[in-house]
Design a protein around this nucleic acid. Structure first.
Length: 609
RNA sequence: GACCCCGUAGCUCAGCAGGAUAGAGCAUCAGAUUCCUAAUCUGAGGGCCGCGCGUUCGAAUCGCGCCGGGGUCACCA
């Protein structure tokens, strides 16, 4: 076992062993530039369908509008002619001609050209960029906010670490990814429930209770010696034992386990959850809902789920085959258990929902839990550690079956797996001691490097790629840390605005026509933000926002440094108040976008460094 | 043996629902600081996008099959 505090679904991730056209949505307040032009193209294509140039019923789904990689290709490009040509029985470039003629008539479009195999490249009027710049100011903290989610509720379950000890670094990535995803979905127009599932019903918490009992006896003055293997040795259980000793005296010291197990379990779990909440709070993570597995079972909902599954022939009483591929455990013997037909859904074995002692398996309780959760949301997202990948198929199958009762379509349910984080120190694997209690706690790391560094660093890799987290690098290296790079851009902007204010300059929009090509290019990058939000939200991938912010910061730094060689490109120009005001207006907008993006990720936008 | 993830520049990684000449950071080399924060910037070199076949106007991206690395395969959680 790699995880010193027991396996949990959340993530024991330490490696110890070894802009679409269709779905472009408007914000509540204003159309984003991309959405507006997507709508334009849609209108044109609609006309062509009405006129019969394109066949009736032509799907516009494959049509995209996006910023071209190469700036020489203009401001926006669409593949419309290429993807629709076949259906129309036209050559792509011929169809493109028709589309281009109509687009070119639009006031916001200064040129529409056909390029390559049939791309349509659009150049936008500077007025469009200036309007977008104003929109950033008008919308402020809401710039980038999207109506994509249309107010539907998404339940994001993350962390869900076993309540048997403090949070450690193995939990960190899933915690950050889940929390950032929650923030992202909220910003994209969803109602979000941040949920934590407490595994307080299994054998692990009984072990916890026994460990606490030992600490309780210790607190009463008994010499307990070495903590027996199989119990949790961490010092963090001492105060829990001491509190019980203070409350109950010697009452349970020599009592049989049956008299104290339940009590000690609930006290211990409560104490652990308090600790975990505090640990999460250091990362800025606050869940809305904590669901208890024990309460779920007590409520009878698990039984109800079993009954429903039995009625639909998805659960039956059967025997498992002996484990294949390796020697069967010595105590293995065939037993009849209630099995879920997960083989129907690609699993290689049907899975028990109850143990031979009559208790629910983790899976049995879990499927009922997800069913219950599905009643409270329009869509579910779980963030799991990759070590639980093997259980994805069965739980998805079970939830799909349960939620499509009465002929309803199954509740959307995604499981995002986050890969392991390898802890390093100076490039060498950082070994966590198996003598638990010595593991690297989340709180320690946050204290060492700060919440912002931890959060941003965890988002600098896509979640399904493994990741190294080198303490030395992350602690010392301000330079290699993308988070500082982004924050520095924001700090520079703040500083410039402060400095300008001292000199009597304020951002103003009255001379925006004096902004040049470099400035408009910077606006163009900022203008991608709403689109990035929608794409990231749709893909459930908050890390894209981190990468976008890095790019935006890079553009800003590059622009800034133009002023080194060319003083006339600086923001503050003593001899030109009007241009200074316009440049400051631009700078303030870039700062706003960085702030909004960092806000989504839960990272602080600092005013100075 | 089965399933999941990864394989892109010397290293660490992006690459958006298939798009145009594949990008960034680090490292290397050459430069920029009487100046709004140099924690920054400019430029150069560096690539059979693991391999093969297929899908199509077009594949790093989708499908299939290999190869290599990691993970998982309990009545655990």
């Amino acid at each position: 076992m790699c995880c010193p505090v027991g396996l949990d679904r959340g993530q024991c991730l330490l490696s110890c062993t070894r802009a679409r056209l269709r779905p472009s949505h408007e914000t509540h307040m204003t159309k984003t530039l991309y959405a507006a032009h997507a709508a334009l193209i849609e209108t044109v294509l609609g006309e062509l369908i009405a006129e019969g140039t394109l066949p009736a019923g032509t799907s516009l789904a494959p049509v995209t509008i996006e910023p071209p990689r190469d700036p020489a290709h203009g401001d926006l490009a669409t593949n419309a002619a290429m993807v629709l040509a076949k259906g129309a029985g036209l050559a792509p470039r011929a169809l493109a001609e028709t589309i281009v003629t109509r687009l070119a008539a639009q006031p916001s479009i200064t040129s529409a050209e056909i390029a390559g195999p049939g791309f349509i490249n659009l150049r936008l009027s500077p007025e469009v960029w200036r309007d977008e710049l104003k929109a950033i100011h008008t919308l402020g903290a809401d710039y980038g906010r999207s109506g994509l989610g249309a107010g539907t509720t998404v339940n994001v379950e993350y962390v869900s670490a076993n309540p048997t000890g403090p949070m450690h670094m193995g939990h960190c990535r899933g915690a950050v990814v889940g929390d950032a995803l929650a923030g992202l979905l909220e910003f994209a127009g969803h109602k979000v429930i941040r949920e934590y599932y407490i595994n307080d019903a299994g054998a692990q918490v009984d072990v916890l209770a026994r460990s606490v009992h030992l600490r309780y006896r210790e607190a009463l003055g008994e010499a307990i010696g070495e903590i027996p293997s199989g119990l949790y040795p961490g010092d963090y259980l001492k105060p829990v034992g001491a509190a019980l000793a203070a409350e109950f005296g010697t009452r349970y010291a020599a009592a049989p386990e049956s008299e104290w197990l339940g009590l000690f379990r609930s006290r211990a779990v409560a104490a652990m959850m308090e600790m975990i909440r505090a640990d999460l709070a250091t990362l800025g993570i606050v869940h809305d809902v904590f669901s208890s597995e024990a309460e779920l079972q007590a409520s009878g909902k698990v039984d109800a789920a079993e009954a429903w599954l039995r009625a639909h022939d998805l659960v039956y009483d059967g025997m498992l085959e002996a484990p294949k591929g390796k020697a069967p455990p010595e105590d293995w013997e065939p037993t009849v258990l209630p099995l879920f037909r997960s083989t129907r859904f690609g699993d290689d074995q049907d899975r028990p929902i109850k143990k031979s002692n009559g208790a629910w398996t983790y899976f049995g309780a879990d499927l009922a839990y997800h069913f219950e959760k599905a009643q409270r949301a329009d869509a579910l997202v779980d963030i799991w550690g990759a070590d639980h990948a093997g259980t994805v198929k069965r739980i998805k199958a079970a939830v799909a079956a349960l939620t499509s009762a009465d002929g309803a379509s199954p509740k959307p349910f995604e499981i995002k797996l986050v890969q392991m984080v390898q802890l390093l120190k100076g490039g060498q694997p950082f070994k966590m001691s198996k003598r638990a209690g010595n593991f690297v706690t989340l709180a320690d790391v946050v204290e060492m490097v700060g919440k912002d560094v931890v959060r941003f660093t965890m988002l600098t890799r896509k979640p399904d790629a493994q990741m190294d987290f080198d303490f030395d690098k992350v602690v010392e290296a301000s330079k290699d840390n993308p988070v500082f790079y982004v924050q520095y851009a924001h700090a520079r902007i703040s500083s410039t605005l402060r400095k300008a204010a001292e000199a009597g300059h304020a951002p103003a929009a009255h001379a925006l026509e004096r902004l040049g090509a470099e400035e408009l290019a910077l606006i163009a990058r900022a203008a991608q933000f709403p689109r990035e939000i929608e794409m990231a939200a749709r893909a459930r991938e908050p890390h894209r926002i981190a990468f976008y912010l890095y790019d935006l910061a890079a553009d800003f730094h590059a622009y800034w440094n133009l002023g080194n060689d060319r003083p006339e490109k600086r923001f503050i120009l003593e001899q030109d108040a009007a241009l200074t005001a316009a440049r400051l207006y631009l700078a303030a907008a870039i700062g706003q976008v960085i702030r909004n993006g960092l806000g989504v990720l839960g990272v602080t936008a600092v005013e100075s460094m």
